[in-house]
């Protein structure tokens, strides 16, 4: 890509990433949540990869990281759900943390934690799919 595209991508990516984090963290107060924020985070990474060429060796390292973080995130979701068995009312997916006051950032019990974990999971899964396609393309051309 040309220099203009690279520079603009460099300037924008940080803001897109920050917006994704904002959407995830405020998921229980404003429209958005884990799914939307995770997709936006993946979009920031994809913008970066599309703008700045692709170095296969570097991408493979990234792919390992994204697939590992995806697996860890879904495992933690499962563990948090199982923790509901042992704390409180013995129900799967029990909301065992104190709910707090409606409209504050730290409220709604375990929902913000689920939001963050699902956000990481969605972002990592979409990034893994995209990276697999790009690496496949590179391997054909060799």
């Amino acid at each position: 890509m040309s220099l203009i595209v690279k520079k603009v991508a460099q300037l924008i990516t940080g803001f897109v990433f920050l917006y994704g984090i904002y959407i995830i963290v405020h998921g229980h107060l404003t429209p958005g949540g884990g799914f939307a924020g995770g997709a936006i985070l993946a979009g920031a990474y994809i913008l970066q990869i599309l703008a700045f060429g692709r170095d296969p060796l570097h991408l493979k390292k990234k792919e390992t990281g994204s697939s590992v973080s995806e697996s860890v995130a879904i495992f933690l979701v499962l563990m948090m759900a199982v923790a509901g068995f042992f704390i409180g009312a013995k129900v799967f997916f029990n909301n065992y943390l104190p709910t707090g006051k409606i409209g504050e950032l730290v409220s709604a019990g375990a929902i913000p934690l689920y939001n963050v974990l699902i956000g990481i999971e969605v972002a990592a899964a979409l990034l893994t799919i995209f990276l697999a396609l790009i690496i496949y393309k590179e391997e054909i051309e060799e």
């Binding site: 229980h28 958005g32 499962l78 759900a81 799967f92 409606i102 019990g109 375990a110 929902i111 689920y114």
Partner: peptide, 22 residues
């Protein structure tokens, strides 16, 4: 009142319908 989430969609998604999300 039960989950303390102002966004009802998120409340339904992660509390009442947690299995779907999983």
């Amino acid at each position: 009142s039960k989950t303390g989430s102002a966004n009802l969609v998120t409340g339904v998604l992660f509390d009442f319908r947690g299995y779907d999300t999983l």
